[in-house]
Each structure stands twice: as C-alpha cells, then as structure tokens.
Design a protein around this nucleic acid. Structure first.
Length: 486
RNA sequence: GGCCCGUUGGUCAAGCGGCCUAAGACACCGCCCUUUCACGGCGGCUACAGGGGUUCGAAUCCCCUACGGGUCACCA
C-alpha cells in the first residue's frame, strides 16, 4: 500500500487560536482527509517560559468547535505518542547525539554574554549574525568532559560552509539558498529541551508525517530542516508553505493589534460554519467553479494543493459578513431561533413579546447575530424620537398626513377583537382604500409610531401584531400626541 | 541591510502561451420588487505594478526596476 498521507497541526499553546493558525489546521486537516489520510495534533511546548495555563484546552476546544477532528493527539492517543513535546524530552537529546556522532552537530559552551557581544559586533558592522563556531573545534573528549562536569551547553547544527541547499515546496516550487547564510542553529537548548526547529524535524519523522504544512514565515528556515533530514538520512517530507493572512496590505492579522481570534468571531455572532468556509477561501480557491459556499464535508472532498495561492490574502470582514448572512438564511427557522435566542434576550425582556415571531422577522435581515439587540430593542421600550421621522418623501408622508393616518388607525384598530396580522392587515388596508391614500401614507406612520425608529425588522403590521393591541394603541397614541403638540 | 518570497479591480480570486477587447464573488452605485429595512432579481463601476526581452502570439515564459511581505533568537 502506498504510504498514507499524514499531516499534523503543531501549535504551541499560547492560549489563543489565531485565525491564521486555525486556517493552517484546516488545510492540514483537508489535505489529510482529501487523501484519506490522518490528521495529527501535536502540542509544541518546548518553550517553558511561554507556558500558559489552560492553553491546550483552548486548542482542543477550538478544533472541536470548528469540526476539525484529529485522528491522533494528546487527548485521544495514537501509535506515535506521546503527542506533547515536553513529554518526549528524553528522546531529542539522543537524536542530537547521533548528529554529533556523524559530524553534523557539535557541543557549544558559549555564554549568553559572549553571544550577545558577538551579535552586537556583527550588528555594528552591519553584517548578518552567524555563530562564529568558537566551539566547533573543541574535541569530542574535551566537550564530553565539560558536559560531565555539569557545564551548561547547547548543541548546534553544523551547516555546510559552501554550496547551496535546495528544497521543493508544493506551492512555491524549488527554492535555493546559499549555505553561507545558514547559521549553526541550536538544536538542544541549555535547559535540555529541543528548539522548535529540531523537535519539529525529529517528531515529524518519528510520527511519519508526509506533508509538512505551515505558514510561509518558515520558508526561510526550511533549508535547515532539509539539511537535518539529510544528516539523519531520513526521507524528506512534502513541504507546503501557506501564504499569510493579512489585515491590510501591509499589516499582519495579529492578536496584539486587537484582531479577532476564532473564539472572538464566534462569540460576536458569526457562525462556525461560515467562519470555516470563509477562511478556507483565504489562500485557496476551488478553481474553475462559481461555487463558494462549502461545508467542511464538501471541502474534504474537493480540497487540492493546486488551488493554494502564493500571495498573502487580506481578511475581509465584509465578505465574512455576507457569507455569515448566507449561512444564517440557510438555517431552519428553529435553528435560527436557537442561535438568535441569547441575543434576542439581551434586548427583549418583556414577556409579552413573542420572540419567536421576532426571530422570524430577523432571519433574512441578520448578517451578524450580535446586531440583533440593537435592531430589536424597540420592542421592549419605545425609544424617544422626533416627529421628523414621520416625514418621508418617497412614502409621500408629511406630519399632517401622519397625524391623520394615526388617528384613523387608532380608531380602527381599537375595534379589532382578534389581534393578528391578518386582521390588522385588513383593517389598515381598508382604511387606505376608504380614504384613497397610498399604502405607504398609512403604513409608514404606523410603523414609525409603533417602533420609534427609521429602520426596523418587519413592517407596521408585523410589529403591531407582536406588540399586541394594547401596546400598539399606546404607541400610536404617543405618536398622535407628539404630532398634535407641534 | 543580507537572503528568500510575492504582485490580476477596494477585497477574495479564475486564468497555467492563442478560447482574455480577463470569469465569478464581496463591497460600492443604480433600477426593480416592496408598508421601512433586509431578502430576491437586473444592471453598472473599477484590474493583469512598471519597463525590457522570448514568441507569429504573453496576464501566462525570462530579465531588470518598483513596491509589499517573510526571515535573520538557547521564540515558535
């Protein structure tokens, strides 16, 4: 059997699911699934200084929420565990030693101070920093003696002095760099833990990862990875570097700048499916089709590497809004009601209001759930408004006409026994017919009176129905008084 | 700054040498529907960064320039 495709999402637990990270996870998942492969979750917590309480839970939660299910991971196990790097600590040192054995790495005892000085002097000369290999020629015996004595040390990768290193990337093609720009990077830190770069290579190999998918900020460190694979004699995986997600042409999307995380988007009224769909389209295109609404299941079928783009994509909230609206309209009324309920409850506390009816009015008019309270608060309390609201050119209304219409409406509405949309409709329209005015000359004033707003979800009749007879008449009366006192 | 990558309308993008006087979507603007708003329908607006090649022919290939980004840690 051909080797199974295995991808991995390897976040470091920072307590925050960045949109870019989520997209990386999504693509990794999709690459695996579109090839009937496996998607693995591995936690990269080799930086102890950055440890954040509960951060791993955020990762689980976000992935679960997004519907991105891993086949192996710390929480569910698998044949290649453990899946947390800090729990694999012992293993990296042994691998680093193998590299020392074959001459691809060496011990280094340089102090932070020396390194800092070195860096400063390079900087002063305007040169790029490269470790000066001060420790490279320490003999193996001497080095091991120092280690045995307990001297702090790191292990560095020995880069070739001359020549070039090339690697293939599935989206960027073949890339070549001069070896002279490669720094003898640290593999094992003085705390004994591996650096990200080293742990990554070792774990990806051990976990038989076939496709290494990551953000394009890793593009320039990839030659070092290749050299590491070669030094071990391991098979080089397929590299897939993803273009960045930007907030503007010149700024990255970032937490520090206050850009929303996945959870932020969800809690501000975006639907999970819409967000997932949207980010799938940031940096990837399904190709020659006009379709752009896809479920995760559909994406699992159609995703392909060819659609990956090389250039950065700007996160466009407008398009997300639209897509979210599309998803909202696709919900059944009941599903929408469930989703809208918490937002409705924020604005509409009056028990007499049938929020289910409000919900029905809202579904076609809502793009982001969080806008619901501001659009429905008038059901609870009639806002203060100016009589100029009654004047609308296109509706052909003036304050005089409005006053007259409201007076007629009030009288006619009072006679309704069975208060429902149909009845209200009949009454109001017969009024229109009787007085020979335009529909709008009756309905605009009524809508204005019952809502106190220029824009509302639903029209006069729907709102009156929801408000109930008593409240409707009360509000119409308020309107009459406002207009009469002018 | 060195190295690496990128550049189709405001945004996401199709396009892989002739089908391109360049798709589709979002946004924006207009019209229609309509009791407001929305939904829906119809239409409009804007793009191959610039310059050189290669070729019968270039958005597509090559080079240069400009601009943007990434990266140069005992962070990931």
């Amino acid at each position: 059997m051909a080797t199974e495709v295995r991808t991995r999402f390897a976040p470091s637990p920072t307590g925050y699911m960045h949109i870019g990270n989520l997209r990386t996870a999504l693509y990794e998942y999709l690459i695996a699934k579109s090839n009937n492969g496996k998607f693995i979750l591995r936690i990269e917590d080799t930086d102890q200084k950055r440890y954040v309480e509960g951060a791993v839970e955020v990762i689980y939660k976000s992935l679960r929420l997004a519907g991105i299910r891993h086949d192996e991971g710390p929480d569910i196990g698998g044949e290649y565990g453990p899946y947390v790097q800090s729990q694999r600590k012992g293993l990296y040192l042994d691998y680093a030693k193998k590299l020392i054995d074959n001459g691809s790495a060496y011990y280094c005892f340089c102090s932070q101070e020396r390194l800092t000085q070195l860096k400063d002097s390079y900087e002063a000369e305007g040169k790029v920093f490269r470790y000066d290999r001060h420790c490279m020629n320490i003999s193996r015996e001497e080095a091991e003696k120092k280690v045995a004595e307990g001297q702090p040390y790191v292990i560095r990768q020995k880069m070739p002095d001359t020549g070039t290193t090339s690697f293939d990337d599935a989206v960027y093609g073949t890339l070549t760099v001069d070896n002279s720009v490669l720094d003898d990077q640290i593999l094992i830190k003085s705390d004994g833990l591996p650096t990200y770069n080293f742990a990554n290579v070792v774990d990806d190999h051990l976990m038989e990862i076939t496709h290494v998918v990551r953000g394009n900020e890793y593009l320039s460190s990839t030659p070092k990875y290749n050299l590491l694979y070669q030094a071990f004699g391991w098979e080089i995986p397929t590299y897939i570097h993803l273009p960045l997600i930007m907030k503007s042409p010149t700024e990255k999307l970032s937490k520090r700048a206050g850009d929303p995380s996945f959870e932020d988007l969800i809690s501000s009224g975006y639907l999970v499916e819409a967000v997932v769909n949207y980010i799938a389209l940031l940096g990837w295109s399904p190709g020659n089709t006009d379709e752009e609404i896809f479920t995760l299941k559909e994406l699992e079928k159609i995703f392909s590497l060819e659609g990956l783009s090389k250039s950065p994509a700007i996160f466009d909230i407008n398009k997300l809004n639209w897509l979210n609206g599309e998803y909202i309209r696709k919900l059944t009324p009941e599903e929408f009601y469930q989703a809208a309920y918490p937002y409705l409850k924020k604005a509409v506390k009056n028990e007499n209001i049938d929020i289910k009816k409000v919900s029905r009015l809202l579904q076609a008019r809502t793009e982001i759930l969080s806008t619901i309270p501001e659009n429905t608060d008038f059901f609870d309390t009639l806002p203060e408004y100016d009589t100029s609201l009654y004047v609308h050119k296109k509706m052909k209304t003036t304050e005089e006409i409005a006053l007259e219409s409201l007076k007629q409406a009030e009288k006619a509405l009072e006679d309704i026994n069975e208060w429902n949309e149909q009845k209200i409709h009949e009454v109001l329209f017969s009024l229109v017919e009787k007085s020979g005015i335009k529909n709008s000359q009756m309905l605009w004033p009524v809508r204005t009176a019952v809502s106190g707003k220029a824009v509302t979800p639903g029209g006069a009749i729907e709102i009156a129905d929801i408000l109930g007879k008593e409240e409707t008449l009360r509000r119409i009366n308020v309107g009459i008084e406002k207009l009469s006192s002018k």
